[in-house]
Amino acid sequence: MTAIMQTGAPTAAKAVPVLKRRSPYPAWFFLPAAIIYGLLFLLPTLASLYFSLTRWTLFNSTFIGLDNFAQFMREPFLVKGLINTVIYAVITSGLKVVLGLALAVLLTSQIAARGYLRSVVFFPVLVSTVGVGITFTVLMHPTQGMINEGLALLGIDGPGWLVDPNLALFSVALVDVWKGVGLATVIYIAGIVAIPQDYYEAARIDGSTIWQSFLYVTLPLCRPATVTVIILSFIGGLRTFDLIWAMTRGGPGFASDTIASVIYKQYQAGFYGLSTAGNVVLFVLIAVLVIPLTMWLNRREGHE
């Protein structure tokens, strides 16, 4: 007690209320964005967790537990959509990484018409997906389409790109790559351009070949670009809807259905609970695949 008195007394005499000034960075700057984002994104996302457990008509909902999810695991066409989504995401992101890197290396080298080539590769990124979808649907027409007519000139009997159930999903994925590879390319170009020239010169003095320079300088040093491309195109692939809808509507049959197209079909059919369950499935799928992927990609980076 006395010790407290001794130390307490002098400070108490001089005690001044600690007055705070207002922060120059006011918290209410968050408010407009927070309201819109909270109301139109977060709230529906949280609500979806509940409505996915119901049979739902928008006006009233009946709680049915995990029935919707059970249906997703049971109905062959829904399972097919789930598998297709993963296949689609893996194909598109894989091709975008490989082709994007190859194009970026080509377009940062001493090549003629670099500006023209960069523009041509990038422009499809900005074009309406529906427009691209329709155009390629026509180009991929099994008998009249230009692609098969071109192949016929070379003596190849072109396949039924979009009508063959075994091929439809891959055909759409190829168009996705056609449209999206420009983005991967510019991301890689930015990554490659940021590598200081010193490393290449040092490697050359150490006697490395062009291929070795690519393998030991370019590839490791543009890893951030690789991470960006993979994550971006993988998430995009899992969520893809517009291109599939414009080209095949999930057909023929359910051959090219993905979760996103299933969600839309169930919505159209009025199965709102099932549609929302599809949303949750897609959400979980993304979380389960992308979070470990991100952690793995970034952990490797940390070790270097």
Binding site: L40, P44, A47, S48, F51, W56, S275, N279, F283, I286
Partner: peptide, 10 residues
């Protein structure tokens, strides 16, 4: 991915 039907409901 945005939860579409709940957003419509909202």
């Amino acid at each position: 991915p945005p939860a579409v039907v709940p957003t419509i409901w909202l």
